[in-house]
């Protein structure tokens, strides 16, 4: 019984961390219509940033400034934000496919940098030497995971509240206005490029938060954590859950991650041994089909965007 609870705590932690990243993507794609093909770069920047700033000094690379944990986490988010700002300022004034391609490229380049630059992120063997905060007093076991889950859930809730407030604010209306008709927005004297940049950077900072929490949870990050697979997974979560709807984003994260892990569990129980060699390929084909099918038959996702008619005068 305790085992089941322990696993549920663990599963919920990972799903919640992914949900935060999906919320970040929802701000970019769902609300602003920005295609981020390199979610994993900003996620990774958060993870590496946090572990570098909060970790212990290591002999073979620059890691380890032993900063107070919350500062390290915010630092990780800032790293993600800066990366997004650089990419955004170069691409956001162009047609939208430039952003898609550049973000895809930045993810490849980020992984490549971390794989090679041993002095920076430990190289291909990954970044160690991070002590999880309060590990001394809480130990490593179930209690720690439970408290960490509470922290992650608080982060998720805070992100959710922040985005909900943002979406119903005038700024949120502006985002949707730009997504729907950029020229109209411009003619009203708004600056689409600046607003899109703000949304892009904010979304990436949220992904950085998710990455920071992820790195903290495993106390380790390596280039294998930031392969393009994660970008696909996070996108699938948003598309299935419902782009433009924050509840949908969270729902999608839990659903897809549950399906992903459950299918592995079910395969190990029920599938013939021969089939397991193909399990990986089949799983990717299935997720590809889910994405395409959703786009074709229910592009609004499970929980569609509620169109907010601005009517502040009536409230």
């Amino acid at each position: 019984m305790i085992g089941i609870i322990s696993y549920i705590v663990f599963f919920t932690t990972v799903a919640s961390i992914l949900a935060i990243a999906v919320l970040g993507l929802n701000l970019q794609w769902g609300n602003t219509g920005l295609f981020n093909g390199g979610v994993v770069a900003f996620f990774g920047a958060g993870a590496y940033g946090t572990l570098l700033l909060g970790g212990k000094p290591q002999p073979d690379h620059i890691a380890g400034f032993e900063l107070f944990y919350p500062i390290a986490l915010v630092g990780g988010m800032a790293v993600a934000g800066i990366l997004a700002w650089v990419v955004g300022i170069l691409t956001l004034r162009m047609r939208h496919d430039y952003l898609a391609i550049s973000t895809f490229g930045v993810a490849v380049a980020f992984e490549n940098l971390m794989r090679n630059a041993e002095w920076l992120g430990g190289g291909a063997k990954g970044l160690r030497g991070f002590e999880r905060p309060f590990r001394d007093s809480l130990g490593d076991g179930f209690l720690y995971n439970l408290i960490f889950l509470v922290v992650v859930l608080l982060c998720l809730l805070a992100t959710y509240r922040f985005l909900e407030t943002l979406v119903s604010s005038p700024f949120g209306r502006l985002l949707r206005a730009i997504r729907e008709d950029e020229n109209a927005a411009r003619s009203l004297g708004k600056s689409p490029a600046k607003i899109r940049l703000t949304a892009f950077v904010s979304g990436s900072v949220i992904m950085g938060l998710a990455g920071g929490l992820y790195g903290t949870f495993y106390a380790f990050v390596s280039p294998q954590d930031i392969l393009p697979t994660l970008t696909f997974q996070i996108w699938a979560m948003l598309i299935v859950g419902g782009a433009g709807n924050n509840k949908g984003a969270v729902l999608g994260a839990f659903l897809i991650w549950a399906a992903w892990t459950f299918s592995g569990w079910a395969l190990s129980r029920f599938a013939p041994v021969e089939a397991q060699l193909y399990a990986g390929s089949i799983q990717y084909i299935l997720i590809g089909l889910v994405i395409v099918t959703m786009l074709l038959w229910r592009p609004q996702g499970l929980l569609p965007e509620r169109l907010v008619v601005s009517q502040s005068g009536l409230r």
Binding site: G3, I4, Y7, V14, Y218, L230, G264, S268, G280
Partner: peptide, 25 residues
Amino acid sequence: MILRDTQVDPKVGVDAAKALVDLDG
């Protein structure tokens, strides 16, 4: 022997290991 696929993905591997330890003991 309960065999779980890692897909060479750390998240998936850790989840599988956690399930084996917690659920199958």
